[in-house]
Design a protein around this nucleic acid. Structure first.
Lengths: 144, 144
DNA sequence: GCTTGACCTCAACAATGGTTGAGGTTGCAT
DNA sequence: ATGCAACCTCAACCATTGTTGAGGTCAAGC
């Protein structure tokens, strides 16, 4: 069986049929149609869905995934190398997220020690690593 | 200055006034009111907001934060120990998220090697660590 | 005492990521 | 050839996390 119906794709990927419709509307996946207008997916749709799920687990919005998929060929199913390149980018993304969380966790540990949770020096209160406030942002909060 | 107006709280925490209103509606923060019905925040609101931001960065929904805040005293401002207990829980949560991401990243590395991205054995396709499929979920996808 | 900026409430709207339902069609098995 | 599950489209709806605007009030300086 070279092509998948929506139902099969849904069962095999673990996402709902309506989600597949939705992804298609958003340009994340693509379907061929039978004479009777029913969707038929090439096998690579399963990889795409897997990537979508990975992205969602790390908080990457679908629009970003769509753009990442933009580097894949549209008509033919991607080669192993093309997938590997995409995977490598996700790997880097994961690295970044992990580093961010580790930093966050360690900051939190420090904050338990110091009693703070919203100081200028506290990474918790400073998202995006824009720590040095430029006039705006959190101020020192005088401990009682 | 023992009490903060919305504007001050917003400037010092880095979130918008409308977000503060929103958090209050959702029961995440609490305000006293002046004779003229304007909000006045106790200083601990800044910590609460910091915690909210941490939570959001790791993908915890506000409702969960509200429940976590349920363990804090409602009337009096929390003691350092009470905050520390909360922080410890967040620390554990962060640990879990980090472990998850690391696993995800390493799985991805493996997948680059094996060329897979949606196999039964692949953690990427199996969120929530429910790896052993019980009949449902992803099936092996025969490599070409 | 008057102006001005900060504040109030309430309702509507926005983006994301879908789900649900109505109303109709396809395709496989018997 | 007919019945039934699976499919189709389209529109409406849902939760989350806010923002925007209208219409009105408060408070502090001049």
């Amino acid at each position: 069986m070279r092509e998948l119906s929506v139902g099969e794709a849904a069962r095999r990927s673990g996402v709902s049929v309506s989600a597949l419709h939705f992804y298609e509307r958003k340009g994340l996946i693509r379907s061929l149609r039978t004479a009777g207008n029913q969707r038929r997916y090439a096998a690579d749709v399963l990889r795409r869905i897997a990537v979508i799920r990975v992205a969602q687990r790390v908080g990457v919005p679908l629009e970003a995934v769509r753009q990442a998929f933009g580097t894949l060929p549209d008509e033919r199913t991607p080669t192993r190398d093309e997938w590997a390149a995409m995977s490598a980018r996700w790997h880097d993304e994961l690295d970044r997220r992990i580093a961010q969380l580790v930093k966050l966790r360690d900051s939190l540990t420090d904050c338990i020690g110091c009693g703070c949770l919203s100081l200028t020096a506290c990474a918790l209160a400073n998202p995006g690593d824009r720590l040095a406030g430029e006039g705006e942002g959190p101020r020192r909060w005088e401990t009682p």
